[in-house]
């Protein structure tokens, strides 16, 4: 009791009084989030009853040849072979905080993009990454934000970094009056353009981003 009083008076002295129940609130908050974590552990799909969604989002993609997110966590045995074989260290495993997605591989293309060496698809023992060719890879689709891209939003700007770095130049990306245009039929979603893009918006996105539109297909049995 004495200690508590001392603490309170100390707070008053320093001039920014802390509410007495703040620590309690913090405890409740952390308990709540722990509860959410455990609920998330037991839920697979991002549906009405689950609180844990897939970690795949813009610029955070699965390695090449990945099966849809629907069955990814159930098929992948988290052996980490793709992580080990990746020569660019582009593939990183998630840890246990990601619930059912723990241990599954992800490519953070903003940091290190996929160079499409196709080594990971060969070593996957479970067929979670299917053995496919370079040009068949569909990690996502690059989308240009025309409000952020300097060649689209400004009159006298000349930047074609995304065009220069694209491994499928003139196929997946073309220049329309010196402005880049994505051809969705050929874009592999490797993220080299995201990695190269010089513009970073206020929300942390680049002027060109890879959206994982293929990861959320539903699986038919």
């Amino acid at each position: 009791m004495k200690l508590k009083n001392k603490k309170l008076s100390k707070n008053k002295k320093s001039g920014n009084p802390l509410p007495a129940d703040q620590s309690k609130r913090l405890l409740l908050k952390s308990l709540g989030s722990a509860g959410i974590f455990f609920l998330g552990l037991s839920s697979k799909k991002a549906g009405a009853f689950s609180l844990k969604a897939s970690p795949v989002k813009t610029n955070v993609l699965r390695p090449p040849g990945a099966v849809p997110e629907d069955i990814f966590p159930s098929k992948c045995i988290r052996c980490g072979r793709c992580v080990e074989v990746c020569p660019y260290k582009a593939i990183r495993p998630l840890d246990i905080r990601s619930g059912v997605y723990a241990g599954t591989p992800l490519v953070f293309v903003e940091e290190i993009p996929c160079y499409l060496c196709m080594k990971c698809v060969e070593v996957c023992p479970t067929g979670t990454l299917r053995p496919i060719n370079q040009d068949e890879t569909r990690m996502g689709l690059a989308v240009i934000d025309k409000h952020a891209c300097v060649t689209w939003s400004q009159e006298l700007a000349l930047c074609r970094t995304c065009y220069n770095v694209c491994p499928f130049k003139e196929k997946a990306i073309k220049l329309d009056e010196l402005r880049p245009v994505i051809i969705d039929k050929y874009c592999t979603g490797c993220g080299l353009c995201v990695h190269g893009c010089q513009v970073t918006q206020k929300n942390g996105k680049k002027a060109i981003n890879v959206e994982p539109i293929y990861a959320f297909r539903t699986v038919k049995w």
């Binding site: 697979k44 159930s74 045995i77 988290r78 052996c79 980490g80 992580v83 495993p93 059912v100 723990a102």
Partner: peptide, 25 residues
């Protein structure tokens, strides 16, 4: 759960994974 959970607590596999994490990352 719908995911192979032994991998989270499989000690023989985890040792190898941890060694890989330490060497690579």
């Amino acid at each position: 759960i719908g995911a192979p959970i032994f991998v989270f607590l499989s000690p023989p596999g985890l040792v190898g994974r941890e060694i890989m994490m330490v060497t690579l990352f």
